[in-house]
Design a protein around this nucleic acid. Structure first.
Lengths: 188, 188
DNA sequence: GGCCGATGTTGACGGTGACAACATGCAGAG
DNA sequence: CTCTGCATGTTGTCACCGTCAACATCGGCC
């Protein structure tokens, strides 16, 4: 994860990145069921089995993709926090908004990061990749407990919205404001 | 879903129920990856195509299993609400406890109900199956918005706990009490 | 008693993840 | 400059899976 796409390899030119890009596109366009290792290889213009030189298994590819998602999420959260710090606004609500915007913008990737696919206990790197995002959120809360609650709240909200479980209700920003605000108010 | 295991069929004796039971056992013991339609049929003692007489596709079987999970969750929530009503306690916290207990007791099934597997928009019966559980929870909140928030909170908490994302922290009941209490406090 | 539809079986096909053996080409040692 | 080693990519193969089609079996209804 440090210099994660290593220096361009010999034959293809950064095949891992190409594989991850193809995988993300397939995930976005055809859902997780349409994401086969062979199709990923096909889209990347290499033969099946080429991916095995970079990812020991299909799950590992998915785990790497999910880890990339966590990095992006962290970047989004950091940006929101910085933007809130400039305007002097309380950062928790903007962070929640940014979190939900990310989940809504990349639903398939979000579902891969949580829930579906690679089990975190079999891919410890994935769990580690999620830590920075949590730390960014925790930096905006008084204590760790409040951070856990805030994360749980926005995460649960994101999932309920994605599942269409509350779709007919007011899914607009008011809902987010009200629910997050209620939580923030309780901590004051 | 009304009389959902229909009258015992001819040859086997309630094959659908046997299939669902086998599927749940496989899901619990070998994870969602080890849940193949053929293995389910094998465990149920029928040939590999027998399930197709009752479920049009593998996803449909999973959706039915998830729906059964929602029914069980609703039963658990109802019981908790009734128990709280007897003692005169405010019902929201007991409900949250019961919800998290359910998620912890059946992690694989819970992950199937949300997140993984059958997409709710392709199996509307699954979304419908989730409604009663939500209604049970909503009956313990002042308005629909508060219900959505409470559900999101416990749901997110359940997922974070399952992912081991906050495992090293205080995962005991205190965390649940504090986080849920904060939310309840904010709504007062 | 005999038909008919629901239920279960056998067989087949394309696709997939994974393994093994083989080919290719850069990179550094001599 | 050449040769050798190793990372990278390929071809071939295997078992398994989901699904479709054709066939067999059994109970209820006329």
């Amino acid at each position: 994860m440090s210099t994660w796409p290593p220096q361009p390899p010999y034959h293809h030119g950064n095949l891992p990145a190409a594989l991850l890009a193809a995988a993300e596109r397939l995930l976005r366009e055809h859902g997780p069921a349409g994401l086969s290792l062979r199709e990923v290889a096909r889209q990347a213009g290499v033969s099946h089995n080429a991916p095995y030189r970079h990812f020991p298994t299909r799950e590992a590819l998915l785990a790497a993709l999910a880890a990339e998602g966590f990095h992006r999420l962290d970047a989004v959260l950091r940006e929101a926090a910085a933007s809130a710090a400039q305007t002097g606004e309380a950062p928790l609500l903007p962070l929640g908004r940014a979190y939900l915007r990310f989940a809504a913008a990349h639903p398939a990737l979000y579902r891969l990061m949580f829930g579906a696919g690679p089990r975190k206990d079999e891919h410890p790197a994935l769990r580690a990749a999620a830590a920075p995002a949590f730390a960014t959120l925790a930096a905006c809360t008084p204590d760790r407990q409040a951070a856990i609650g805030a994360w749980a709240l926005v995460h649960g909200l994101a999932q309920l919205l994605q599942d269409g479980q509350v779709a007919e209700e007011l899914v607009g920003p008011e809902l987010i404001e009200a629910v997050l605000g209620r939580y923030v108010r309780g901590g004051a």
